[in-house]
């Protein structure tokens, strides 16, 4: 459903979107009609396609109905020529790549460039923003920390030499948010002329990305979530280093409501009145596939 909100962007870019599950075709029709889904839903009730792609979750016991038959969930991006150009899979069943990430992967990643007609920065400039305009339950979106380092200077990449500080971002404790490992850009080696000492640095304009999702069981009524934390770095040139620097940030971001679950929520059940029957049937047919 979160994906549907971005379908205008996929359509405008002429990118087809398919979503396959082990549900029966009529269950998918009900889901599509209840939620106005316009991407193509595909039914693989015997998990043949999931198996042939090689991603059947074999950690689930074949007699554990109706769970057996699901894939390790994920997404693949296919080029116009039919080649797989990118894959998004996560160990955690609850995590899915945000629509922005999928769209960028299909279009080609945006290149991070200095802002036009902005004077060259005198010090390190840091800007913190979020991919997309809201957060949603279990849908992963990146907190983007953009650095602009003046020419002739660098900041330490991770791991920094002993006694120095690598560029980093940390979040304040917040049990409504789940964060995933930080994504750092490739760093460059930098050798000091005097000593020949070499370490890894970042130059110019670059981004750190911290993937975030809202915890699905965090049923807070607050419509916004505050993402707060601290960015740290240490900037140097070939001669001297500034002391370690830091900056606090605080973003208030709207959270879309938790997905109403037709098996547990009477309002959602009104929208999908057959959900309980679909669930019963999917359990029973797997016990007796005959």
């Amino acid at each position: 459903m979160e994906l549907q909100k971005s379908m205008r962007d996929f359509d405008a870019a002429n990118i087809r979107v398919y979503a396959l599950s082990y549900d029966e075709a009529d269950a998918l029709r009900d889901f599509r009609d209840a939620h106005g889904i316009t991407y193509t839903l595909l039914s693989d009730p015997d998990s043949d396609a999931i198996r042939s792609f090689g991603i059947l979750n074999t950690l689930i016991d074949p007699n554990d109905h109706p769970w057996y038959g699901i894939p390790y969930p994920g997404a693949v991006v296919v080029s116009a020529e039919g080649t797989i150009t990118r894959k998004f899979f996560d160990n955690n069943l609850a995590v899915r790549a945000g629509p922005e990430r999928l769209l960028w992967a299909a279009l080609g990643e945006p290149v991070v460039e200095p802002l036009a007609d902005q004077p060259a920065p005198l010090g390190v400039q840091v800007r913190v923003s979020l991919d997309g305009d809201h957060l949603a339950f279990t849908v992963q979106r990146d907190l983007v920390v953009r650095f602009d380092v003046p020419e002739g200077r660098h900041v330490y990449a991770a791991p920094a030499p002993q006694g120095s500080l690598a560029v980093d971002v940390t979040l304040d404790e917040n049990d409504r948010l789940v964060q995933r490992p930080i994504v750092r850009p490739a760093s460059e080696p930098h050798a000091l002329a005097g000593t020949g000492e070499s370490f890894q640095v970042h130059h110019g304009v670059f981004e750190l990305r911290l993937p975030l999702a809202v915890n699905s069981f965090s049923r807070s009524a607050a419509p916004d979530i505050t993402i707060s934390g601290e960015v740290r770095w240490q900037c140097c040139d070939d001669e001297v280093c500034d002391p370690p620097a830091s900056r606090r940030f605080e973003l208030a971001v709207p959270v879309s409501g938790p997905p109403a679950h037709a098996l547990r929520d009477s309002r959602a059940a009104t929208l999908e009145p057959n959900a309980a029957a679909h669930f019963r049937r999917m359990s029973e047919r797997r016990k007796d596939p005959g």
Binding site: A19, L20, I70, L263
Partner: peptide, 11 residues
């Protein structure tokens, strides 16, 4: 081009 998603279940 296409994005092909394998998901758990719509049910």
């Amino acid at each position: 081009p296409a994005v092909f998603i394998f998901f758990r279940s719509a049910v």
